[in-house]
Amino acid sequence: MFKSMSALFLKDIKSELRTRYSINSLAMFIIVTISVILFSVGNEKLTPFMAGGMFWVIVFFTAMSGLSRAFVSEEERGTTMTLQLIANPDTILGGKMLYNMVLIFSMNIVTFLLYTAVFDSFIIKNPDIFFLVFSLGNIGMAVSSTIIAAIISKAGSKGTLYPVLSFPILLPLMLMLIDLTKLCMDGTTFADTQIEIFFLLCYDVLMMTASFLLFDFIWKD
């Protein structure tokens, strides 16, 4: 199963590298959002907490702009039926999730680097805890957005519906991430953030389980 999952993942990467549609639009989206924030802030200095919260706003909207491609592109190219024939649903979901995870990780690392370069007040005092939080958050975001993308692709690829459906699902994750980023910027110890990190872990595991359980129903129609 893992073999076919990675085959599917490589297929997605290959077809992405051929057109570079997602990568280009995501990169442009990140640059555009950061510059819009820069324009609106002007010469004012952002407070550290605000900078921490704003970071996740950029991440959320970038994710919303690009991650639905995973399933929508299959519908657009008319390759859904072929996929249904050659692989079982769990493999497909696994492969797509992996692809989205790689996409979101690379996208967020770029956002993070750009953001730290541009905003002076965005200083993380606990890089190790922040890295853990960042990774768990990315995994959670990739998992939730993949399953919502699957729903969207079956609902006639309505683009505007994607953020509407994703936001309530991602909200607990986003709230915790914003909270934890503030704690990391304050420089709290690991013991103080334990509960929140455990919360993130719970979210990731629960979402992944629910996705694998429910994907069958979306996929077979």
Binding site: A155, A210, L214, I218
Partner: peptide, 23 residues
């Protein structure tokens, strides 16, 4: 409201409400 087909609408909204239930 976005889906016309009755069966599809029922299935997709059922899946969505189950996922939302997890949160």
């Amino acid at each position: 409201s976005a889906i016309e087909d009755e069966q599809k609408r029922a299935t997709l909204s059922a899946v969505y409400s189950s996922i939302a239930f997890v949160t």
